[in-house]
């Protein structure tokens, strides 16, 4: 008499995998970061006796943004551009309520960047009453701009190098 083979489906043993999960989840929960910390790179000017690092061959400007209780005053400085041309870049952005107008700052810096593409440095001169939070918002506004590259909107660097002015000797 021929034997009939019965194909019995074995259940997968999930217990070891469960053990692994139950160990890993508390471990990850303990080390999980529910807030994400980032950094903003800033420097302060220092006195140096070396040669200037400013490139004299390319037309570039350093943008000075002075934040005071009335608003933002934008000026530009450069070793290669005439004072008349620099004067044309000056702008004043009045405060919007209690806060500085970050969008208008981005737009003003964008105009300068489009004219002098090599520029990347912003000197931020906050007023003594300017809050740290407000300073960070101004740096954010100066970091990137949206521009169309090959038909697509991309974020391009605007003035990512920030120097908070206070000369240290």
């Amino acid at each position: 008499m021929a034997r009939v083979k019965v194909n019995k489906v074995e259940d997968l043993n999930l217990i070891p995998l469960m053990n692994l999960f139950v160990t890993m989840i508390p471990l990850l929960l303990l080390t999980a970061a529910f807030y994400h910390i980032g950094m903003v790179s800033v420097s302060v000017p220092t006195q140096s006796t070396g040669e200037s690092s400013v490139e004299t061959g390319k037309a570039s400007v350093t943008v000075n943004v002075k934040a005071d209780p009335k608003g933002l005053t934008i000026t530009a400085s450069s070793g290669t551009i005439s004072p008349d041309e620099l004067k044309a870049l000056d702008a004043f952005i009045p405060k919007k309520g209690n806060m500085h107008d970050a969008k208008a700052l981005t737009a003003a810096l964008e105009r300068i960047k489009r004219k002098y593409e090599q520029s990347d440095t912003m000197m931020l001169v906050p007023h003594k009453t300017t809050s740290y939070n407000q300073m960070i918002k101004l740096m954010d506004a100066a970091r990137t701009m949206k521009a169309s590259v090959g038909g697509k909107m991309r974020k391009l660097p605007l003035f990512p190098v920030v120097v908070v002015t206070s000369l240290v000797e």
Partner: peptide
Amino acid sequence: VLRTCAMAGYPQFRFAIQK
């Protein structure tokens, strides 16, 4: 604080922020 750090030989900063 920034000035003091720079005087002590730390002119570069990374401001910690919440993303």
